[in-house]
Design a protein around this nucleic acid. Sequence first.
DNA 1: TATGAATGAGGCTTCATTCAT
DNA 2: TATGAATGAAGCCTCATTCAT
Lengths: 216, 216, 216, 216
Amino acid sequence: MKPMEPALEKRDAILATALVLFCERGFFGTPTSLISREAGVATGTLFFYFPTKEDLIDTLYRQVKGEAAAALKAGVENEPSVKQKLCRVWENAIAWAAENPAKFRFMEQFAHSPFVSSTAHEEGMSHFLFLLDLVRDGIREGIIRDYDPILLCSLLAASLSGLTPRILAEKDPEKKEFLTRQGLTFLWNGLAAGPGAKEPCASLERTIKKKRSPRP
Amino acid sequence: MKPMEPALEKRDAILATALVLFCERGFFGTPTSLISREAGVATGTLFFYFPTKEDLIDTLYRQVKGEAAAALKAGVENEPSVKQKLCRVWENAIAWAAENPAKFRFMEQFAHSPFVSSTAHEEGMSHFLFLLDLVRDGIREGIIRDYDPILLCSLLAASLSGLTPRILAEKDPEKKEFLTRQGLTFLWNGLAAGPGAKEPCASLERTIKKKRSPRP
Amino acid sequence: MKPMEPALEKRDAILATALVLFCERGFFGTPTSLISREAGVATGTLFFYFPTKEDLIDTLYRQVKGEAAAALKAGVENEPSVKQKLCRVWENAIAWAAENPAKFRFMEQFAHSPFVSSTAHEEGMSHFLFLLDLVRDGIREGIIRDYDPILLCSLLAASLSGLTPRILAEKDPEKKEFLTRQGLTFLWNGLAAGPGAKEPCASLERTIKKKRSPRP
Amino acid sequence: MKPMEPALEKRDAILATALVLFCERGFFGTPTSLISREAGVATGTLFFYFPTKEDLIDTLYRQVKGEAAAALKAGVENEPSVKQKLCRVWENAIAWAAENPAKFRFMEQFAHSPFVSSTAHEEGMSHFLFLLDLVRDGIREGIIRDYDPILLCSLLAASLSGLTPRILAEKDPEKKEFLTRQGLTFLWNGLAAGPGAKEPCASLERTIKKKRSPRP
DNA sequence: TATGAATGAGGCTTCATTCAT
DNA sequence: TATGAATGAAGCCTCATTCAT
């Protein structure tokens, strides 16, 4: 049962340690010296594998993003309908976040960080394009509102971001499940097209018009 | 009619400059020396008003949070119903973000930063407790789902976070309004209780149960 | 008798210390930390005045070059003939080197160093262009051989480089003067046009031709 | 007729690579890792042949110095007179520098480097002692000025240093030969004793005396 | 002989903060 | 109040060297 690539043990230790420390203390709050010490390697070793601290961050970001995307996709192919596919994605997402809280927080924290290179951001995005396709399929089938698909994806992701910390904070597994369910209902009703849809108040125009036309 | 505290001009310049720079470059990416230079004051002056960089961050955070909260509340008292109050809040929120993109980004970016003191975070939170009350009122009146109110608030905030960047990125004012409307519909349908509510798929239990009960 | 620009005391201490240390140990052999320690200032102070180690090197190089050029030029204007002007330059050069051995060695050592920026090198060169003019004047007047003037300048400088270390090594002032005199005679006979000129052996062509034409 | 020490191929590759890199980038600007990479060997291999970086430098320095000395001596024995011997040396020197510009620059650059061990410097010097003998012979025969022989050797070497870069920079072979000729004439007239010798101006004493005897 | 991952001391530089003016 | 030169701890990274294979 020996490691397949023994030489990469240290590299992996560095990545794993960095993940935890970055979450706890942020990129800047985590000196490379701390990472290497906690990982049980010499300072030089870190720079042998990652020429730059930024490089380490990038690599980690890509890896976590890729992992997350793979988790979200798991089993989606086998679901018969768009609705079920989407539910599966959401369930996968929450389950993954619950099982990988550190990785989840890492993604949240650095999704907009200027210290993740833009190419890494783009590569990260690309893994989630299947979601956009799914939303488009739903719109085409008429089960999702005919809204800007990018906006809907963005709302979907945001809802997940809002939901997960609440779930991670909850210890009682029953309540956990309960909250998950509530979150899903929120999402689905927000997205779903159909007869029961409700209208929000129509006051918006006033507010905006006020700015430009001081007279009705 | 001269200003009452002319001496605070420099203090204000520092705060305003810091806001912009923190947004563009993050807390760590922004040396105090840069802030003072851009604000047109000496390095010592910054530390006269804010004994510590953390202090400056905290002060700024509180100020922006307070401003945002005030903006959200504007005119809410005068709305007759809970629904209309909530709509007003949302409209206010989007309008404020649209008019204060830097401040909005600042809040987003540092909402979870470990470098904002926890007391500042708590104080920031406190300004938004009226929202929790509003949601509770809505639940009591039966127009909002009877879900965990904190969760609903959190989803509300998250939706806003998802919506706003999309709106800020849009130049065409017509489309801006359009997207705003779509976001609101998403939100309201996610929150609103009532006969038309839809059920998401019921598959979740399987996934979660599998992990804990190895039983058939 | 207080210093005129008290604020620059530390800057000057850094430059003076750096000059000595660079001569003794080279650029790379001299850590900035050593310079600041020996100069009696904090590490940060060095970087307050010189943003970069390279910057310090450059500044020093320019300063020393400028000083040397000024020393060489001293009193040259007042000399009546080209020959006397040149002698004056040579005397000035040797006297300056004798009085500023550290600066002289600094120039020697770093004249070709890749760590002096090329703009600094150019600027350094520019101070010595008057020499080229002098040589050209001498050629025009027929008292200097009609050779490539740049080559002659270069030989002049090289002779100085060869002469000075020998003089610096000599303690006895009589012998010092003696050696100086010998060096000047070597130079002047090397440069001077006129009836007494001697021809070196004419064998050069053989050597070079041999390489290309294996047969006469 | 296979090579006698095939195992030394790597050693030679290291030396050859180091020579080039040291010239281009200096000792400190050239990490051992770069040398081994460019030489196509492992980092460890370099340290197998040269226990220390300094050792590599030293070895290289000795080798190049030895090679240069051998080149200068070539054919000198067969020349009939001192004058012809010296001319031969000069020609040899210029030819060698022209054919081995990298090695020449290496010698120039590190002739005074504190990172070449003093024993290596001494050994290097020793190869050139025949020149001193030659100059002494010339003096004894009365064809070279009766000056300090070490000084003359030093001026000879310096003239070469001043001449060679100029020649290396010249592309046109005709001009190359021309410049070489001019350099030789400069040298020979500088060295040669005889009736045509010219006197430089006699002003030196003034300058130097002024410093010591304030007397009229 | 040859390899290259691993080491860790040490170098350059940044920056929050102080303090004499 | 306001200044900005001065400080020095701490960060990122380099690189000569070692050693298990």
